[in-house]
Design a protein around this nucleic acid. Structure first.
Lengths: 336, 336
DNA sequence: ACAATTTGTGTTATCGATAACTCTAATTTA
DNA sequence: TAAATTAGAGTTATCGATAACACAAATTGT
């Protein structure tokens, strides 16, 4: 590998002068500058950022940790984060925890040893608190994305889950549905709790009873087993609509329903959180509460860089992003 | 930040002894080892991998460059690469070129300055040759994924594009279609050329004429404009089926067709390369030539690590992965 | 019991860059 | 024109880790 010393020797100057040319600092005569630049090009020199990081105590690397790389919500978010990081002059180290605390811990260890300057952190759930405390201990700035973690005070970019849930349920209500099931994510995750709360709120506002038998839990990445749904639908007064807490759950519900011979929206309406990315043009065109995924990443990244470069001036800030109800054809008026 | 010297001082030993404990090398008495470990835990010590990389001339970081993070093919591939990298003890630096040479170049620069040990490289197209030559110049091992690049000799994991294309077209032929359009990716990309060749081959094998007016080009991420399709369908003898070169193109075709008031498969059959990931349960259930995306990542990563750790023993190797025809309902028998 | 070996540990140099300081020659100022 | 300033370099120390060598104490072999 070509080093700064090779360039220095070749150009007949000291390493320090080369460093000055690279960083455009200090005084270097035009003549020397040109010569050094020429040698750097000829030898295809690229500075070793490890060495630089070591002395500067700054890596210019940020880390983005998401929980599901297969989910369009997160990949869109990732693009927002990536675009913004690049614009602001940082490299980005991706991590994918797969909603799994063990994997998440591995990534945190890696983050620490890499000495990244900051982390955009979409936690797997409440159990992520231990990992976030590790970051705090090492004074690595971070911004929480999408999910809140009890016991952790930090900058956050959060969606209006409760509100979005209420909108979805009220939409179903307006279509005449009164028996609405909720298939939720794990209660270990703040967004699942919020969506649950929004669901209850909407019922209450519309004087509908809350029926525990209509509420089921799944991991955000878990598949809805057929038995599971059959049980739900075998009740006395089965639901006529299902509110799935995220897109992944919605799709697996649709698939399982099909297995039972039921179709959407003819037999049941289905609505969910988060859009499907490029697949949203497929049938049943899902009625969703779409979150501005790109903004999650972009705003989070901006905040993170601000935090790194200017410190936490005014204490932790929370940005709450609204979700938008997009009515498509997976939900339809209940026939009487 | 806690350094190895802090640990050494606190434990009353030299930094070298601490290093020996960390790496389990050399001789250290059990008593000392325990003491050092205790101090490391107490102070939450994490080794600085920048410093380590600098002296070892090895970062233990690999890079994965994909062209479209929104495409399930690549995210699945990414998961395969990630799982394998972790299993083999490497960290992974993701990059997403968005099918864009300028972004790709930025990533290559970053890769060089990060001194990664190797790169899993899904090139944006033939123009990536310059970037790959840069890697060669710096002796950074790489494995090509999914696409070939003329002029570059390297290990490759390639899909059987030609064969897959032929299978898709023959499937349509068996359903009675004889006017089959191809909406292809840019001819700048090897897979697009191969799929084109497979398409021609299939026509020839079945004694069908090759009609230029039925072949159109789009970027793999470009949207099919409505005009574009209207023109295609306004021909004398319009196609009854469309072979879209990838999933993204297929979806945008379906969307545009819907805009014109046509539906799939009632009015036109549509087939494509690559499955849709979790969205494959949606309607129209696409008939696809599914590639083993996870394997692309996993095998590529294994090969890359082998290359790094054991050198290129036997010259560049090419692994060709077959695609599987999955017949669903987006293609149907032509009514006469 | 004494040389030979092994064990456990420390010292010094190094990786590739930059900060802080130094130094000389050129230029400006009074 | 002598003193003061500035421009354009170079020197040395440092970041945090590890390799290579050094060396005393403990253990082994004969």
């Amino acid at each position: 590998m070509i080093t700064i010393y090779d360039i220095a020797r070749e150009a007949g100057v000291s390493a320090m002068t080369v460093s000055r040319v690279i960083n455009n600092t200090g005084r270097v005569s035009d003549k020397t500058r040109r010569r050094v630049k020429q040698v750097m090009e000829d030898l295809h020199y690229v500075p070793n950022s490890n060495a630089r990081s070591l002395v500067l105590q700054k890596t210019n690397i940020l880390s983005l940790l998401i929980t599901d790389i297969a989910n369009p919500f997160y990949t869109t978010l990732a693009r927002g984060a990536e675009d913004t990081a690049k614009r602001l002059g940082y490299r980005l180290l991706f991590g994918n925890s797969d909603e799994n605390y063990a994997k998440e811990k591995d990534y945190v260890d890696m983050i620490l040893s890499t000495r990244v300057d900051g982390v955009l952190f979409a936690p797997a759930g409440d159990g992520s608190a231990a990992h976030l405390q590790q970051l705090e201990k090492h004074r690595i700035p971070f911004v929480l994305l999408d999910r809140d973690v009890p016991g952790i005070t930090a900058d956050r970019i959060i969606g209006e889950s409760r509100d979005g849930a209420r909108k979805l349920v009220e939409h179903l209500f307006q279509l005449g549905h009164t028996r609405i099931a909720l298939i939720n994510g794990s209660e270990d995750v703040s967004t699942a709790r919020e969506r649950h709360a929004g669901y209850r709120e909407a019922l209450k506002l519309n004087d509908l009873p809350y029926d525990e038998k209509l509420v089921l839990h799944l991991g955000y990445r878990e598949e809805a087993e057929r038995d599971f749904l059959e049980q739900l639908l075998a009740q006395n007064k089965p639901p006529t609509a299902i509110f799935a807490a995220n897109n992944f759950i919605a799709l697996s519900v649709i698939q399982s329903l099909r297995g039972i011979g039921l179709s959407v929206p003819e037999d049941l309406s289905v609505v969910c959180f988060d859009d499907l990315g490029f697949a949203s043009v497929l049938n049943p065109f899902l009625t969703v509460a779409a979150q501005p995924a790109y903004q999650f990443g972009a705003l989070g990244m901006e905040r993170l860089v601000d935090l790194i470069e200017n410190g936490s001036s005014s204490g932790p800030r929370t940005i709450i992003l609204p979700s938008e109800l997009i009515v498509r054809s997976s939900s339809r008026r209940l026939e009487v």
